[in-house]
């Protein structure tokens, strides 16, 4: 995000693990750097699960597993979009605002206690459209007017929140009146909650796009070295706009799903999600400077944070400690990842 200035000219990057082989102990550092993500994460997950199962037998129950998957679904959808954006070295802060706007638009057009209109499928189209529109706005201002994505998405965060507040107005809380819609996210298909299946479908599409399309590989190339990506004829601006549009669309979907899970509309339906999604991507090894990481790693990051949260609650830890534990974990994870790549000449922003 912030290390834009000097990588400009010829892309002289004195940073990153790629330069590691130049100094001593490099092969180990490289090996460690390459494997620390998934192996470290998976072993951390296994340890967590074992510890929590011992602390509280209810943790390993089928009901709690379904509960965890239910909680994982919203951040999982968000992290797919966030990973696309972070891979190209940008950042999308607008998550919570877009969720609020899309969720509120959707519930007001679905069967609810306030308005008597039910647009059915069109409610989905409008809700997702709001997300896509705000994402497009972010992407266009960022790519075409060359305003840093941090600032633009900070602006669209407030814009989304503003739309949600205006839609909410002064009248009563809109609650879902359709039993079918309200029950859908928790209902089980093949033993797993529907909302999780939705998230899995999004994740599968995300992996496909990220790993097997020109666009997905292009985002990685932009994050790695934008001048070279541009110089080799890649439609960089188009890719940037598309990445933010997809992220916006997924924020919209997550907003609708979260609204459905809650059963009523709320302007701050996305509250706290940004503090799960960005640490999850970073813990998973997606570098904020771009050009690294992947969907599956971010997914592991989401699971780690949600299981940690769930386990701590079941172990009787005060919820006040949640953000502290997340923060501490984030610190440990980034330091562990950055440790082998330390270098006197490395640029760390």
């Amino acid at each position: 995000m912030a290390d834009a200035a000097q990588s400009g000219g010829g892309g002289t990057r004195a940073a990153g693990p790629r330069t590691a082989p130049r100094h001593g102990g490099a092969p180990f550092a490289r090996l460690f750097g390459a494997t620390t993500g998934p192996v470290g994460l998976i072993s951390a997950l296994v340890v967590l699960i074992l510890v929590f199962s011992v602390l509280n037998p209810r943790f390993a129950s089928v009901e709690n597993l379904q509960n965890v998957l239910f909680q994982v679904s919203v951040p999982l959808i968000l992290v797919v979009g966030a990973t696309l954006v972070i891979q190209m070295g940008s950042i999308d802060l607008s998550v919570e605002g877009i969720m609020g706007a899309a969720g509120m638009a959707w519930i007001l057009l679905s069967p609810n206690t306030r308005l008597a209109i039910d647009l059915g499928v069109w409610a989905w189209a409008v809700g997702l459209g709001v997300g896509l529109g705000l994402g497009l706005l972010t992407g266009l201002i960022y790519a075409k007017l060359k305003v840093p994505s941090f600032v633009v998405s900070l602006g669209t965060w407030y814009v989304g929140l503003g739309i949600a507040i205006l839609l909410y107005g002064n009248s009563s809380l809109p609650s879902l009146t359709s039993d079918a819609l309200e029950r859908w996210p928790t209902a089980l298909t093949l033993g797993l909650p529907n909302s999780f299946w939705l998230a899995v479908a999004v994740l599968a599409a995300g992996v496909l796009i990220s790993n097997h399309t020109r666009f997905g590989r292009g985002l990685m190339a932009i994050g790695n070295n934008e001048p070279i990506a541009r110089g080799s004829g890649m439609p960089v601006d188009l890719y940037k706009v598309a990445a933010f549009a997809i992220a916006g669309l997924l924020c919209g979907l997550a907003g609708i799903l979260a609204t459905m899970q809650l059963g009523s509309g709320s302007t701050d339906i996305g509250f706290g999600q940004l503090f799960i999604v960005i640490p999850a991507a970073v813990i998973g090894g997606t570098a904020l400077s771009g050009g690294e990481g992947g969907m599956m790693r971010s997914t592991l990051g989401v699971f780690l944070l949600i299981i940690l949260n769930n386990g701590l609650v079941l172990a009787g830890v005060d919820p006040d400690y949640q953000s502290g534990v997340f923060g501490l974990l984030l610190l440990v994870a980034i330091i562990a990842v950055a440790w082998p790549g330390r270098d006197r000449l490395k640029v760390a922003k």
Binding site: V282, L288, G324, V325, G327
Partner: peptide, 21 residues
């Protein structure tokens, strides 16, 4: 930041959470 060379965004997000608690 200076000695471990982690990105300041992630680092201060971490201390943000700890200080909140």
């Amino acid at each position: 930041l200076a000695y471990t060379q982690v990105p300041s965004f992630a680092l201060t997000l971490g201390t943000f959470g700890i200080l909140q608690t």
